[in-house]
């Protein structure tokens, strides 16, 4: 990393520290939500400076639209002022200070950050970089590691996303019961439909956002991106549609049942690819046996499981949004 990049990094991290201190200090939750948006942008820029484009893209796809929307949805259900802090602030400070000291002490045994002689750089990383070309033959090593070499971990991640979605739906309800119970939102009053400029411009942009989502999905083997990011971007376009046209319209386009099927279907697709490897005589999540050419098989497997990830992430995010929005409207 050159000196100038280092200076940029330090500057961005200083801004990030100022932002987080302001988030902690403010008692107004709306202000906190706005500042969280800035924090997300700063984190994405820092990841970008560290050459971690895939992670930065994830932060961008989630932080740019969806997290603000979900925070505001939650804020609509509660009050805007934070309650005064709990008692015993000194005890909390003491515990945090002790934990921080222990963590700092533990880092003394770590190899220096980014040192080329660290064990992880000496064995695993070169192996990934060399074998990706030979075994999978795709340019984006991150996608190869995420989807193939460490496919188990990613399957676990997708199941975590799915579980989180199911948990939120259990707490807030799917929204179907609220509309059936006779709280019909008057159609004219829904969304930002009366505001002509946002509506026209927003509707113009929706197809392009969807296109970008599919590009990130299917181009993830060549450039930063993949299922997680694409799912978030597609979900953002649907959320934009329901902000503009109102909840009910959006639920007519993609009904709740379809969303639930997406949540489950993506995880099942991922698992099915793994089982297909077993049936064809390989290991679980070993894609080499999916095609007569092992390299082709790996590429097929990565493509399929990325689609599964994208479907689940989009389904979960849209469902969570509807759960919050229908709660706020009722």
């Amino acid at each position: 990393m050159s000196t100038i990049t280092l200076l940029f990094s330090i500057f961005l991290l200083t801004l990030l520290m100022i932002t987080t201190m302001a988030i902690v200090r403010t008692r107004n939750l709306f202000v906190a939500v706005m500042l969280m948006g800035i924090a997300s942008l700063l984190i994405a820029a820092s990841f970008f400076l560290l050459d971690a484009a895939d992670v930065a893209l994830t932060e961008a796809a989630v932080g740019a639209g969806i997290s603000t929307v979900l925070f505001l949805g939650a804020l609509a259900l509660t009050s805007e002022r934070e309650r005064s802090p709990s008692s015993l602030p000194l005890l909390s400070l003491g515990i945090v200070a002790i934990v921080a000291l222990i963590v700092i002490y533990a880092t003394f045994d770590q190899p220096p950050l980014g040192s080329p002689s660290a064990p992880v750089q000496a064995h695993l990383t070169p192996w990934y970089i060399e074998s990706t070309r030979e075994l999978i033959d795709i340019p984006n090593v991150v996608t190869a590691v995420l989807a193939s070499f460490r496919g188990y971990d990613t399957l676990g991640e997708v199941i975590v996303v799915f579980t989180a979605g199911v948990g939120v739906l259990f707490l807030l309800g799917t929204g179907a019961s609220a509309s059936a119970a006779g709280a019909p939102l008057s159609e004219d009053n829904a969304g930002l439909r009366h505001y002509l400029i946002p509506r026209i411009l927003g509707r113009l942009l929706i197809p392009f956002i969807l296109l970008l989502g599919f590009y990130v999905q299917f181009h993830g083997e060549y450039s930063p991106g993949g299922g997680f990011q694409a799912g978030a971007i597609v979900a953002a376009s649907i959320i934009l549609y329901s902000l503009l046209e109102g909840e009910q319209r959006a639920l007519l386009v993609i009904p709740q049942g379809v969303l639930l099927a997406m949540m489950v279907g993506g995880v099942l697709l991922y698992g099915a690819v793994g089982v297909a490897g077993l049936v064809l005589g390989g290991n679980f999540l070993d894609y080499s046996v999916l095609d007569s050419d092992p390299v082709k098989g790996q590429q097929w497997g990565i493509l399929l499981i990325e689609i599964g990830i994208g479907i689940t992430v989009a389904g979960v995010l849209i469902s969570i949004f509807h759960a919050f929005a229908s709660r706020g409207a009722a």
Binding site: L41, A64, I209, I233, I239
Partner: peptide
């Protein structure tokens, strides 16, 4: 990504 979806938060506001 930022250019296309960063404004959604403002709509939510």
């Amino acid at each position: 990504v930022y250019a296309l979806i960063n404004f959604i938060g403002v709509f939510a506001v």
